[in-house]
């Protein structure tokens, strides 16, 4: 199934944009002098004119679904998920890679979605908190989600999606062999409510249970 987001920007200049993209995504074309429009954009002279050329196409898979999108290169993966695709489960805590709330998996690896541009993930697979449980209000939860509920591994719940994605990463990396190891390898996820010990218990329980994560 293909999920194409309707283009909510002005469609004028589509042709010119396509021409520009042909040039810019092929490095062989780099020796060509950038077009006047790009030069203008670089010098911030007339951004309204440059705006037509600012988007690039991007194909990636999110929670198992393929997407073909047109995005500005400056859009972070986090903002793409939240503001364009309405996948608001992934949270913005600090926007500078200092809290872990935006943790998602890219090709299975835990990653901060705020510190990466979406365009850098062409062809890659992204998993967010929305992609863990089976669909529907009663769908089966991921073992780490279940363990978080059982151990009260959250209070306000805001850092929780990032904690859970990070916890799965921690387990997959085999860094959950003792409470101290869990603590060290989860330290990139800040919980201001202080649910740390319950999260450690939740992760340790999943590790002990040996469920596939």
């Amino acid at each position: 199934m293909q999920h194409n987001e309707p283009d909510r920007n002005n469609n004028a200049g589509q042709e010119a944009r396509r021409d520009f993209l042909k040039q810019s995504t092929l490095l062989t074309a780099l020796s060509l002098t950038p077009s006047v429009v790009v030069q203008a954009a670089e010098k911030h002279l007339d951004e309204k004119a440059a705006a037509y050329f600012e988007q690039v196409t991007l194909k990636l898979t999110i929670n198992g679904k393929p997407y073909t999108l047109s995005v500005e290169p400056r859009v972070t993966l986090l903002d793409l998920l939240r503001e364009r695709l309405n996948l608001t489960g992934t949270k913005k805590g600090c926007d500078y890679g200092q809290c872990g709330a935006c943790t998602v998996h890219i090709d299975g690896r835990r990653t901060l979605s705020c510190l990466t541009f979406a365009v850098m993930h062409e062809g890659q697979a992204v998993t967010t908190i929305e992609g863990l449980a089976e669909a529907g209000p009663q769908g089966k939860l991921h073992p780490v989600q279940e363990a978080f509920i059982r151990h009260d591994g959250f209070q306000c719940g805001y850092c929780t999606p990032g904690q859970i994605m990070s916890a799965i990463g921690c387990l997959r990396e085999d860094r959950a062999n003792s409470p101290d190891e869990i603590r060290e390898y989860m330290s990139g996820n800040i919980c201001r409510c202080g649910a740390y010990n319950n999260i450690v218990d939740a992760i340790a329980e999943v590790k002990k249970g040996g469920q596939k994560v």
Binding site: T88, A133, Q145, F154, I164
Partner: peptide, 13 residues
């Protein structure tokens, strides 16, 4: 356990 637990662990809150 919390009644809003499921919402919070699935990103639905």
């Amino acid at each position: 356990s919390r009644v809003d637990g499921r919402l919070k662990v699935t990103g639905g809150a």
